[in-house]
Every structure is written in structure tokens, then in C-alpha cells.
Design a protein around this nucleic acid. Structure first.
Lengths: 317, 317
DNA sequence: TTGTAAGCGTTATCAC
DNA sequence: GTGATAACGCTTACAA
């Protein structure tokens, strides 16, 4: 392996001069810098990041923790993240799995963005206490080293209920996400509170877990409980709504006529369903971009506020 | 930051003893090990990975390079990768963007898996020459430090053509991927050679780039060239086929009657289209699992063969 | 402007 | 079985 030592030898200067030259320090003349840089890439020099990190305690890498990799869902989010990180000289790595949690305390990454319920809030706070900077996308946390960029679930859920409500009277269903999930609980709370404004309605809450499978099970239950009257359902995410489409397709019940459905997230698949899945949309790109921006500011010790990502309605057709 | 030095002081032993104890060396008595381990997590000790890496030149991390994060496409692939890597004590990080290429020569990762045309073969060979181990998923490379795990595009494309051919006579279209892409070229070559077996057919090749947009443009061209006779089209990936669905939906031409389409990749969206998108399927999970397995063997200096991932047909309905 | 040298936190090679 | 101590490759005072 060729290091600055080799370059120094070949250039007839000391290693510190090489270091200065390569790091663009003004302490070195342009002439020597040019000479050193030339030698460096003639020798195919590549800096050893471990050595640099050991010294500087910074890696210029941030990690995003995702619960699972599935779904187009994350694509846009990651684009938003990388676009703003790369612009500031940072790299992004996507982490998953418990063992990768160590990246933070081991200082392999300078900061973390979390959208992963598998990362417990206690653990997260432990790292925050150690001084690590964190942005959470899936919970509320109060800590000087943690900021949150959350979806406006309340507004989204309210829009969803209002959508279902227009031109419809009858039984309401809500299919929830996993318990103790911020997004699910917020959406449920807001939906119920909006429904309360219309005292007369019956609402049945079916527990789900944001998976297609629980969407199908929920649809099955609705079929069982079918009375001949149309029903409206708010699936707290698109994934479950898609599961419901799959199930209803095999029954006599037709979506749009017997069952009115709305999801949440505006995943790609939804727009190809018949009829198009009504859903709550938000900019995943912006979500990522804002999260990255906040994290960078936090790393620079600037003052940072929490932020909300707004939502809007996409009706069916 | 607490390091082995602090533990040593508190335990009244030397740092080397602490290092031995923490790394499970047999050179230390169980008694002292227990004492040291106890002190270590009492002090909340976390090993510094930069220091260890600097010394050992190994990180136990492998990187996967993806061209873009979009699509459910990668979800399964990544699952296959992580499942087998974690089982062997390795971590996976997902890399994207040119700057992350440095992770390999900088030794931030022990090895790489590549599915990213942005990573040029020259660069790749340069790293391989430096001794880095690489698995490629998107090209053919001959090098002792590189192995390939490729799709059986030939079989897949042949299946696709045979599918289109059954019960159909008329004009054939093929919409390609970007030029110089292994998968696109292989599929095109195999498709054309299979079509040649039926001399009588006319085949029109439309250049695309695997994006939805070029699929739409191709569909537009087909509409323009429409003669009233049904046409069959092999879109070299699902993404473009989906774009074609979108376009044809706005025209008089109906898929299944006027246009027979098949894609490649079996992406999730395809199954929700009407009619279901015919496509060529393969196990993305297995693709990832095999790639990871090969890389690990390469890292252990075991002998490793290239491998092929088989494909099968999913018809429309 | 350049050189000397002291770390950064480990691991690993020696002695003891 | 345990303890000094020399690397690992780099950054950065401080000295020249």
C-alpha cells in the first residue's frame, strides 16, 4: 500500500508537507503542491480512511436506518437524502439490521437518520447522550442532539376521512398499522377525532400491521360483515389498501361501488389499480432532503428546528 | 471517549491484557476476562472501529453499488444479500453515487457487489488489480478477483419470444434498454436469434433506456404505425412495459386484444395491471444470496465459480 | 514554506 | 498469563 510516506520519499519532502499539499492547506507553495499531487496520482495514492478517521474522528458519512428495503417507497426518500448530502461532501449509506446500529457509537458514521422501529428510542437516546446527532422520521423524541422531521399525519388523516365522507353515509372501517407506531397512532387518532364530528357514523377499527397480508385479512372481515350497504375504509397505508384490492377482486364486492377505499403514502402501485387508489400524498423526496439538511446543520452545531412534511389528497377516479 | 486504556487502568492490568480479554483470546484466564468484560460495559466501552481497521485492514463490511434506489426491484435482492452476510458476521451497506466508489480502495469495505453501470469496468478492474474482491451482477469480467452472478437473459428472452409467438402472427416490436448494458444486449440478441427461427416475421427494434418514459414513447410509435393488425412487443424490462400500459390506456388500442406485451423482471406493479403484465421472472432474493455467498468465499480466498440465475415465464391472464 | 514529532485507539510481537 | 512496546497511516501543533 502506498501512503504519504512513499510520496514524501519520492518527492524529497517530509510527510507533513505531503499531507498539507494533499489537503489543500495554504501553508504550501503551489509549485510543491503540484509536484506532490502529480507524484501522488502517479503512484496511485489513495488515502487510508481508517487512519484519517482515527485522527479526525469524522467520516463524512451519514447513515439512514430503514426497517426493511421493500418498496418504491424509499426510492424517492433516498434521492432526497443523497442529493443534499452529496452537495455538502457527505456520503450516505443505507443500514439495516441490528448490528449496523453500532456504526453510530463506533463512529463509522457522523450522524444518523432513522426510519426504523427496530431502533428503540432508549438505544437512540443512549447514543444521543454520547453526543451523536440523530434525525428521527418515525417518532417524537426530545433531546438536544435529536431532531424530528415528521409527516403531517393529522392533516392527512383528516383529509382522508373527509374524502370518504363526501357523498357517503354508512359504516366506516379503519385498518391500522402496528401498535406503538407513531405514524399509525397519529393517523388513527386524527381519523377518529374527525369522524367524531359526525356523531351518527359507526366506525370499526381493524388492527393491521401495514402489510399487504393484514389488508387482505381486513377485507375478508368486511366481506363477512357485509350487510348490503356500501362501506368506506381508511387503510392507514397503501400497502394494506393494495391487499384489500387483491382480496375484493376475488369477491362479489366491487371497489368504488360497494367499498370506498383510501390509503396513505401514494405508493406507485396505487395508481395502476382499478379504480386508482385514493391516497394521501406527500413528497418523499422533500422528506429526505429536509432530513439531510437538518442533520448537516446539527453536525455543524447550528440551531435546528423540527419540521413537518405536509400532505395532500389524491382522489380515486 | 473511553478506550481500552481506561479499562486497563480501572482493572489494574495492561492494555494488551484488555485487548486479549475482549477479543476472546485464550491467553487470558477466565477470571480476569470476566472482570475486564464487566468493567468494559460498566464503562460503556465501545471499540473504535477506525483504530481496529487501521490495524487489521478489515472492516467486515461489504458494499452493494446500485445505480439508483428506485423500485421494489431491489428490496428482495437486498434481503438475499443481508440474510447471508449477517449470518457470517458481515454488514451490508448500500452505496450510490460516484464518491462512494472510493469506499473500496479506501478499504472502508472488504468487498463490493456491483449492479451499477455508472461503475465503469476499467475502474473496477483497477480495484481488482489492487487486490479488492468484487462480484458483478451486470457485466462479464475476467479477473482473478472478480466473479459474476448473472441472469440467464438468454433463456428468459427466448421464453418471452416463444410466449408472444404462441397463437400470434404479425408484427413484432422489441423495446431495448440502454446501449452497452449487458442485460439489454443479451436479451436483445437472444430475442432476435429466437425470432429468426421464424423467418416470416417482421421485427422492429425500438431503442429505449429501461425507463417508463421510453416505454411510453415506444407505445406512441406503435400507435402511429398501427395498421389494424395486432402487434406483439417484448419490452426488455417491466418498467418500460408499464410505461406502454400507461400510454395505450389513453388510446383506442387495447392490450391483450390489439397489443400483446411481455416484460422482464417481474416487478410488483406488473401484477396489478389489467391484464396482468406477462413477464420473465427470477428470484431476486436468490440473486442476492448467491452474490453474497460468492463474495464471502472470494474474501476467504476459496475457489469460486461464476453462477447463473435462472428465469421463468409468467403469462398474462 | 517546510520539517519534526506527538498522538488517534487498536492489535500483535515480543519478553518476562 | 500478563505487560511493554512497536506498529497501522494520517493530521496537526510547534519548531526551524
Amino acid at each position: 500500500m502506498v501512503g504519504i510516506k512513499d510520496i514524501a520519499k519520492k518527492a524529497g519532502v517530509s510527510i507533513s508537507t505531503v499531507s498539507y499539499a494533499l489537503n489543500g492547506s495554504p501553508k504550501v507553495t503551489d509549485a510543491t503542491r503540484q509536484r506532490i499531487v502529480a507524484i501522488a496520482d502517479e503512484l496511485n495514492y489513495i488515502p487510508n480512511m481508517a487512519a484519517r478517521t482515527l485522527k479526525t474522528q469524522k467520516t463524512k458519512i451519514v447513515g439512514i436506518y430503514l426497517a426493511n428495503y421493500s418498496g418504491v417507497f424509499y426510492g424517492e426518500l433516498l434521492h432526497g437524502l443523497t442529493d443534499t448530502l452529496l452537495a455538502k461532501g457527505y456520503e450516505l449509506i443505507v443500514c439495516s439490521g441490528m448490528k449496523a446500529h453500532r456504526f453510530l457509537p463506533e463512529r463509522m458514521i457522523d450522524g444518523a437518520i432513522i426510519l426504523d422501529r427496530g431502533f428503540s428510542t432508549e438505544e437512540l437516546l443512549e447514543y444521543a447522550d454520547r453526543g451523536h446527532k440523530i434525525i428521527v422520521l418515525d417518532r417524537e423524541v426530545e433531546h438536544p442532539n435529536v431532531r424530528q422531521v415528521l409527516l403531517d399525519n393529522k392533516a392527512g388523516a383528516t383529509l382522508a376521512i373527509d374524502y370518504l365522507k363526501t357523498g357517503f353515509t354508512g359504516k366506516f372501517y379503519i385498518v391500522t398499522g402496528p401498535t406503538n407506531t407513531y405514524d399509525s397512532e397519529e393517523r388513527l387518532r386524527a381519523a377518529l377525532s374527525e369522524l367524531e364530528r359526525f356523531r351518527d357514523e359507526e366506525v370499526i377499527v381493524i388492527p393491521g400491521d401495514f402489510s399487504k397480508a393484514t389488508g387482505e385479512k381486513a377485507a375478508q372481515q368486511m366481506e363477512r360483515e357485509w350487510t348490503g350497504e356500501p362501506v368506506a375504509v381508511f387503510a392507514l397505508n397503501d400497502e394494506m389498501a393494495i391487499g384489500m384490492y387483491s382480496y375484493f377482486a376475488k369477491t362479489q364486492l366491487v371497489i368504488g361501488r360497494d367499498v370506498k377505499i383510501i390509503g396513505f403514502d401514494n405508493t406507485e402501485v396505487g395508481q395502476y389499480l382499478h379504480p386508482r387508489l385514493a391516497t394521501i400524498e406527500y413528497s418523499k423526496y422533500k422528506w429526505g432532503a429536509v432530513a439531510a439538511e437538518k442533520l448537516l446543520k446539527l453536525l455543524e452545531d447550528e440551531t435546528v428546528e423540527d419540521e413537518i412534511i405536509y400532505t395532500s389528497l389524491i382522489p380515486s377516479n
